[in-house]
Design a protein around this nucleic acid. Sequence first.
DNA 1: CGAAGTGTTGAAGGGTTTCAAGCATAGTGG
DNA 2: CCACTATGCTTGAAACCCTTCAACACTTCG
Lengths: 264, 264
Amino acid sequence: MNWLQRPIAAPFVQRLRQAADFGSADLASLAAIGAELRSVDSNTNFLAEGPRGGAIHVLLEGWAARFKILVNGSRQIPALLLPGDICDIDALHLDRLDWGTTALTPVTVAAISRDKLIQLIDRQSGVRAAIGRMAAVENAVATQWAVCLGRRSARERLAHLLCELFVRLEAVRAAGDSGFTLPLTQEEIADVLGLTAVHVNRTLQNLRSDGLIQLRDHRLTVPDMQALRGLAGFDGLYLHLPDKERVAGSVGPEGSAAIAGAAA
Amino acid sequence: MNWLQRPIAAPFVQRLRQAADFGSADLASLAAIGAELRSVDSNTNFLAEGPRGGAIHVLLEGWAARFKILVNGSRQIPALLLPGDICDIDALHLDRLDWGTTALTPVTVAAISRDKLIQLIDRQSGVRAAIGRMAAVENAVATQWAVCLGRRSARERLAHLLCELFVRLEAVRAAGDSGFTLPLTQEEIADVLGLTAVHVNRTLQNLRSDGLIQLRDHRLTVPDMQALRGLAGFDGLYLHLPDKERVAGSVGPEGSAAIAGAAA
DNA sequence: CGAAGTGTTGAAGGGTTTCAAGCATAGTGG
DNA sequence: CCACTATGCTTGAAACCCTTCAACACTTCG
């Protein structure tokens, strides 16, 4: 069966459709080059820094993170990967991965042949546009994180991260109405925000005591999203999601047909 | 005359050739779509945050910076643009620029029709590869900056920045043997590093008194590059420059011929 | 000559880190 | 069933890096 039509691939298909006019022909051609599904345990580095391999990896289930460990032993996480994200999109253009990638939860990834994908990108303009746009958005997110790390306080950084995660998870239908599951440990959050785990703990309690968030057992609830956005100075435009979702919620032949009709 | 053969375009051509197998046919086709050269005064915002225009801009002369101003008035510079850099490469894929771009010195930019460039990218694989790789490297640099901002001290950040600038300027033949012209003010450096101008001042003096750098009248000299790299923990692999320059130093018909021959 | 921009220096304050300890939970093996 | 361990969360106190505020020197320029 066409792996892209399986429910597990829904977030990835969603992202492709949000990124560009991604028609049924694009979807079919992408599905045709196939993929190998891999399960990865939590806390396992499944992409190593160094020479790239022959595959491109799409995160289907679970959370992952790019990371860099400095000589003094401290770790920075410059990118969080959510379902639908491409783990090593830069490997399309570069011969070396600059960062390791680790699973933060149990994870399922799809490994796609890099050579076949490059050939497909050359041939199929919809695939080219979608992948290109996903890469551009990733750059925008990385730049936004640099702004946060450079000029925002711990409170603001934390609030900003939570706002971003909420919006990104919504885009792949993985957020609830007023919150989501946040599988990160406080130490992982610290490595994202450039803080210590101790200070993340205090900052979380700070937000909690102000009634801005509720967080227990990795379940985050945001009672007043506007308030949190205000504190963070969050403006989600940099995520470049479509204004109104031009994408059907379900994945399947009828969904594809609708897209194909719209593109025709 | 073919504008890409003018000396002013040399850094851009250099970058394209470093990025991929960029042959004479690619060069000629890129030159054919033309460009409008613009001069911009220092401290002028020449690309505004917001809806993109119809042009893509290449920085030919001078230094520029992407910037973001937060509600509290503080500014962060998430990217420095040097000769040969594309100022708004994300505008190829996105409809909105997420940051303003300002000239840090008097600047010359080449404005290229976005539509024509996109058509050329679709048609000419060498151009596609070069531009794609430049975008990927930019993402790698942005990510590296996030690591610096998150996990390095002021001394390390400053040293790292200087190391990166040295290597990037070398790549476009704009660095001397043991230093380069650093046109930035201390406040601009601060906005890059996520610090205050006062602390940049003290940190510069700190590096000076340790004999790691000399800096007077915007002329930077690094007596012992290895020492500076060591302090910064700098590893230039993330810039993804070719191991040995596969690119002739001069720009012109003979240079192009050599490249074309190598590619054939 | 006055104004504006840049670099420099001092002193005080604060946000964050560091170090340390304690608590809770889950898993493991005796 | 109960140590025993490992991991993650929490809290306190002291130290530190960097910021803030302020003042002054220097240069350029109208």
